[in-house]
Design a protein around this nucleic acid. Structure first.
Lengths: 351, 351
DNA sequence: TTGTACGCGTTATCAA
DNA sequence: TTGATAACGCGTACAA
């Protein structure tokens, strides 16, 4: 049983060129101490031999990998896919790879993923917390060993990392205030788990906007769920069959908002006249649904880019640096689902 | 300048327990030769010391990583995100990680990604080719060294790998035939680059369906582009302003189809009465647009799962095995955009 | 400008 | 059931 082709190593090159492996290693890494000629010869032979650096060996020796670990709840959502795309983009520019894992919003899976990534000795970690997660011990190995860690979007203040987030409170406030300015008097809210920062922030913004305009806060109009399409439909069904149905909904994501629109339409409730709706995320569906869904847009791709940059920056400054929180602005994208009055601002053109 | 915490290694455990590193290694890997007591003691101490296996070192020694490399054109598309999700799912079940890279449909980027993944000594590779790619030398290192490689969706017959694809020809045929059965006489096609199998297959299916029903093939009705939203809009603009506009469009993806619908609507062309449209992919937008877009659904998640399983299976059977092509079925999802007649089949309920 | 010798953390081999 | 030793491929302090 013959083994498959042995891999070409720097030793093979050294031998054929009658130089030391050291020289080869240096030549391949463009070390200044090696002459142009040797360097060229080495590279040429390396190429013709089909040499491929073994970064596993290199990583072991230098105790550094060129890989950034990413833990996300679920990768096939538009917002998260864009986050990852941004991370990938920045990382690649700096010569890093990205290793991705998803938690499916499970705490156990998140622990397992964190451990595997730690074992892989990733150079840094970017995490968006699972819905379920309330304890953070599984991240301590990273913190203790000063592996740069950045929390993104879904974060916890209980763990000391850099953070890249949006101002969920401001966005929720702005969205709700918009509905109020459009003349809504009874505004409902589709929210998520309140121990997760993003949903808490959005809901607080909603409540404070109501308060500011002296509108009553009616608990029966606040519906908590996982904000799926199904739950949006059911939420709308519940709300629109109340004795006193709402005339506006601020939904913490677009999926739920979109199916609320669909439910309302099939029930004959006119949007935005009878019911104005604002979503969150600016997913592609929000500009396709009719009427177009007014929504809050995240700069998802940029968030990813920034998070990756933050990780790589922290690799340099290994010293105790104050952990930094970067808060990005959101934008309210005005579309027909909330346009009960002529707007002074010009809505972004969409098609 | 004190170094950060030294990592705990099997030597540390060995020393404290007064056994050899070999024993520790074996105990941690549940080797049969180590007694229950020793194993337990080792694991207990490992845990309390916060030991984390270094898989970089392990990989170097065993010459095996637990990582599967993935090269995709662009990760933030619904279809591809689902593919990846499926890959991740299978891989994780077998204890493998997934390292993802995107080519942005650039040949150069694909080469670079392949090289980096090879350097990382991934245990296997899953590739969906970039739009541009016409040469495949960058994959030879994988083939030569018997690293399991699976092509998925966008493949080439010029490179000998396992393949997981859908029957694009059959799908294109079925979609076009459906339009014909709906009474369309002049059917246009939005297609992609013809050297990429998926677009070629879909277009051939389209053409053969026309032939089967003795409809003329009119080159002016075949529009090639990258099938973006913008290009779908322009394509529709072009087609609907022809002297003899088409009464049906089969689009090779949903984005272009959706914006064709939007263009048609704003122009006052009634869908499906004046123009019936069928897309491809069953992206979320296709069930949100009105009228709902009839489209071809891929089993994307399953394709990913199967590809990953294929990679891992081939790791075992290292011998020369005939490379295998797995062709998955597609399904025509009937929605309003093509329903010019009452259908005998019952359309899947969507909302 | 180049080479020698060692070590990174783990595991396979062989011996006890 | 356990241990001593070498080896995986590379990078680097130190020497030349």
């Amino acid at each position: 049983m013959k083994k498959a082709n042995k891999e070409v190593t720097i030793y093979d090159i050294a031998q054929k060129l009658d130089v030391s492996p050291t020289t080869v290693s240096r030549a391949l890494n463009n070390h200044y101490s090696i002459s142009k000629e040797t360097t060229q010869a080495v590279k040429k032979l390396a190429h013709s031999l089909g040499y491929r650096p073994n970064s596993v060996a290199s990583s072991l020796r230098t105790n550094k990998t060129n890989t950034i670990g990413v833990i996300m709840p679920l990768i096939n959502r538009p917002f998260i896919a864009s986050l990852i795309s941004g991370i990938e983009d920045s990382a690649n520019q700096e010569g890093y790879n990205v290793i991705i894992s998803q938690t499916h919003d499970s705490y156990e899976k998140e622990i397992a993923n964190a451990q595997t990534l730690y074992s892989s000795r990733v150079a840094g970690l970017i995490v968006s917390l699972a819905m379920e997660t309330k304890h953070y011990d599984h991240f301590y190995p990273f913190l203790q060993n000063h592996i740069p860690m950045v929390s993104i979007d879904r974060i916890s203040t209980e763990i000391e990392t850099d953070r890249v987030i949006i101002d969920n409170y401001a966005a929720g406030f702005k969205a709700t205030e918009h509905l109020i300015q459009m003349g809504c008097k009874r505004i409902a809210h589709f929210g998520g788990a309140q121990y997760r920062n993003i949903y808490q922030g959005r809901q607080h913004g909603y409540i404070d906007a109501l308060k500011k305009y002296d509108l009553p806060i009616d608990e029966t109009l606040i519906v908590h769920s996982k904000l799926s399409l199904e739950e949006g439909w059911k939420g709308a069904e519940y709300l629109l069959n109340l004795p006193a149905p709402p005339d506006g909904i601020f939904s913490a994501n677009d999926s739920a908002a979109v199916s609320a629109i669909q439910y309302a339409k099939q029930k004959g409730v006119c949007i935005p006249r009878d019911l104005a709706i604002v979503g969150f995320n600016d997913d592609p569906i929000s500009s396709i649904i009719e009427p177009g869904l007014t929504t809050v847009s995240h700069p998802a791709f940029d968030m990813g880019k920034i998070a990756a940059q933050q990780v790589l920056k922290n690799k340099l400054t290994q010293d105790i640096v104050q952990s930094q929180t970067i808060v990005l602005k959101t934008e309210l994208i005005l579309r027909a689902s909330s346009s009960r009055k002529v707007l002074r601002e010009t809505a972004r053109k969409e098609w």
